[in-house]
Simulated assay, not measured.
Amino acid sequence: MSKIEIAVEVKSPADKFWGAIKESTKLFPEIFPEQYKSIEIVEGDGQSVGSVRLIKYAEGIPIITFSKERVETADEESKSVSYTVIDGDISNFYKHFKASLQVVPKGEGSCVKWSVEYEKATEEVPEPNLIQEFAVKTFSDLDTYLLNLKA
């Protein structure tokens, strides 16, 4: 099993950023239509453990058209969530793909910690750098969106 970790510093307060992450099912297709075609809740409420979401990506996203993910952990107090990809294009490349996210207060802003544990389907499969870059872009763009709300 391999793992990559990143930390993205954002200017938005942790409570505000975490709130937006929790509302991502509705929010992301609205504010990021060039990335997310739709996100629908298949099982549960989309936020609690056991919930399943189907994410359809926009045409501009390379290689991946859809992903189905199950929430494995959700902790309001620590502002953290983890999910495992259970179906979709990512499953063609990785036998196991579990992402974790935590929003940690830092000064007036916060730090978004994102990691992924993965196992490649074959040796030829590249490291998930594209997915990592996509996550960083999403966090940065979400921060910009939230900061512009109060403007």
Rank of each mutant, 00 (worst) to 15 (best):
G50R: 07
L54V: 12
K56W: 04
P126I: 14
F93E: 07
A14F: 02
I90A: 13
I55Q: 03
V136I: 13
N129D: 09
D87M: 03
E124T: 03
E23V: 07
N148D: 15
S82K: 06
I55C: 06
A7T: 14
T138D: 06
G50L: 07
A20L: 02
E76D: 06
S38P: 05
V85K: 09
S2Y: 09
D75Q: 09
G19R: 01
F17W: 01
G44L: 05
L146R: 02
L149I: 05
P126L: 11
E5C: 07
K120T: 07
T122K: 14
L101F: 05
V136H: 06
F139P: 05
P29Y: 10
V125H: 04
G88V: 10
V71H: 02
S12M: 00
E40G: 13
S110Q: 00
V136M: 08
A20W: 04
E77Q: 14
V52K: 08
G46V: 06
R53I: 11
E43W: 03
A7E: 12
S110K: 00
V136W: 04
V112I: 10
V104F: 03
D75H: 10
E119G: 00
K106T: 08
S78D: 07
D87V: 05
T138Y: 03
E133D: 07
K68G: 13
S24M: 03
F28C: 08
S82P: 01
Y57F: 15
V71Q: 04
I61F: 13
G60D: 03
G60F: 02
F28D: 11
Q47W: 12
K120I: 12
E108G: 12
Y57N: 11
I64C: 15
E34A: 15
E117I: 02
G19D: 07
L130I: 12
D87L: 04
E76Q: 01
S115F: 07
G88C: 13
E77K: 14
E59Q: 15
F17P: 00
K95Y: 11
K68N: 12
